[in-house]
């Protein structure tokens, strides 16, 4: 009998669309940790855009679909703090009044985890086989930090990456200004926020900035690249998995095309 946990990877829209390498890095890390990984085919989006735009009905319906899709698995793992937070914290809220769904939503929520915290806290992974030479700084994405309390897990694992020197930037826990549709609804305020973040990254002297959420990463990379910065931007999973062939976010390379 196979005792390794059966894990559903919830890919998230942005990884699916923009950066599949994060998904593959997640699969690699999960398999290394001894999980059987499946990617449920009928998954779409966790429903956050609807939820945060006030469209509760659509968000609730999407929550029901996702719960039904994900409940057969031992665990659900998400390479994003904000989408994991949606499943873990907000689904039970959305479906809490619905007698048929409340219990099911809670059961899935309890088994749903953000990738890095799952590796560290559930699978008890203590180190990784990966190498990256240079100074790296880590941005705490808001939902991961505040809804899921992810703070030490990525740092602990990063410290086991060969050659990697982890430096803290100022205000690593302050929002980068992404905020889903916020960044296009209030571009000036959003830009000011990401500029503060860019300044903190610069002061840290890091050559690479990492985070666990592609939304924040694209925002930081987008601004850094527009300003002509050479700082590389990557999802933490890519570094932990040692999957560094793909060019960093916003850079082109020879790998594809």
């Amino acid at each position: 009998m196979n005792t390794s946990p059966r894990v559903a990877l919830f890919v998230t829209c942005l990884v699916d669309l923009f950066r599949p390498s994060v998904g593959f890095a997640a699969v690699k890390l999960l398999e290394q940790a001894g999980c059987r990984v499946e990617v449920p085919e009928a998954q779409t989006c966790c429903g956050q855009p609807a939820f945060n735009s006030g469209d509760r009905a659509t968000a609730t319906e999407m929550a029901r679909r996702a719960v039904a899709l994900l409940e057969p698995y031992d665990h659900v793992v998400v390479p994003s703090g904000s989408c994991a937070g949606m499943l873990r914290v907000h689904y039970p809220e959305l479906l809490g009044e619905d007698p048929e769904w409340a219990g099911r939503a809670r059961a899935v929520a309890e088994r749903c985890h953000e990738l890095v915290s799952f590796l560290a806290d559930v699978m008890k992974v203590e180190g990784v086989e990966a190498a990256l030479e240079g100074r790296v700084t880590y941005h705490d994405s808001c939902s991961g930090l505040r809804e899921l309390k992810i703070r030490h897990q990525p740092r602990r694992l990063l410290e086991t990456v060969e050659g990697l020197e982890l430096v803290e930037m100022d205000d690593s826990e302050v929002c980068c200004g992404f905020g889903g549709t916020f960044c296009v609804k209030y571009p000036e305020i959003s830009t000011r926020m990401v500029d503060d973040k860019v300044a903190a990254i610069d002061r840290s002297g890091a050559a690479t900035v990492l985070a666990g959420d592609l939304g924040c990463l694209m925002n930081m990379a987008g601004r850094l690249k527009r300003l002509g910065s050479a700082v590389e931007v990557r999802h933490v999973a890519e570094v932990l998995a040692g999957e560094l062939d793909a060019p960093s976010i916003g850079e082109s390379g020879s790998r594809e095309a």
């Binding site: 890919v11 990884v15 699916d16 669309l17 923009f18 950066r19 599949p20 390498s21 998904g23 593959f24 990617v39 085919e41 960044c183 296009v184 609804k185 571009p187 830009t191 990401v194 694209m218 925002n219 990379a221 987008g222 601004r223 690249k225 527009r226 793909a246 976010i249 916003g250 082109s252 594809e256």
Partner: peptide, 22 residues
Amino acid sequence: AGGWTGTRDMPAPQGPTFMQAW
């Protein structure tokens, strides 16, 4: 997407979607 690209570049997708590649 002017709200984004006014001050930021938009990182391009790597290639096919994850689901396609998977």
